[in-house]
């Protein structure tokens, strides 16, 4: 286990802690039903290095989701959504692959591949995450409208924070 891997794992842990200690308690509720949820910890998974085998990616995603689940009292919901997102990541990476392909020293960050590239890439994965998350939470497609509404609102607010985070922290790796 080299220092880069440790850095990624540390980042995921810190983001998860921010999620459960801060974001979870931010009230974004105006009516009786909360439609807006600020969820930023998947960024840690999105930023995982390109070279890591998918097998480990999935294990990390599951562990991360399960950890957050412990504090959300919703066993399986976050872990399942993280797994879906991570499962789709190679496909999304392939779609957004630059013409010259990924080089070994590139990372899926705004600093390495351009801010616009990163926002596109992160937006698609976050969208997948939210759809999976709210579908698993409600667990029936009867409330399809509710799923869509929650997904869009949460996606917008979360993406806004992810954008700020990306500019402020600007991770190199």
């Amino acid at each position: 286990m080299n220092s880069t891997t440790l850095l990624h794992i540390l980042r995921i842990v810190i983001l998860s802690l921010i999620q459960i200690l801060v974001c979870k308690h931010i009230p974004l509720q105006s009516g009786a039903v909360q439609y807006m949820f600020l969820i930023i910890y998947p960024v840690g998974l999105i930023l995982l290095p390109l070279q890591l085998p998918q097998f480990f990616n999935l294990l990390i995603a599951f562990a991360c989701g399960a950890f957050v689940d412990l504090f959300y009292q919703s066993p399986g919901v976050h872990a399942g959504a993280c797994l879906w997102m991570m499962f789709c990541r190679p496909l999304i990476l392939k779609i957004f692959e630059p013409k010259s392909g990924y080089s070994t020293n590139q990372h899926p960050t705004g600093d390495s591949l351009g801010l616009f590239w990163f926002l596109q890439y992160a937006a698609v994965l976050m969208l997948i995450f939210f759809i999976a998350y709210f579908s698993l939470e409600i667990f029936t497609f009867v409330y399809f409208g509710e799923i869509v509404l929650k997904t869009i609102l949460s996606f917008l607010v979360s993406m806004f924070f992810i954008f700020i985070l990306q500019i402020v922290i600007s991770p190199k790796q």
Binding site: S74, G76, M86, L136
Partner: peptide, 16 residues
């Protein structure tokens, strides 16, 4: 992925 996802759904059903 399948195994873990199945486990997640099982957990979702089991505890919620």
């Amino acid at each position: 992925f399948l195994i873990l996802q199945t486990y997640c759904i099982y957990q979702v059903i089991q505890y919620n």
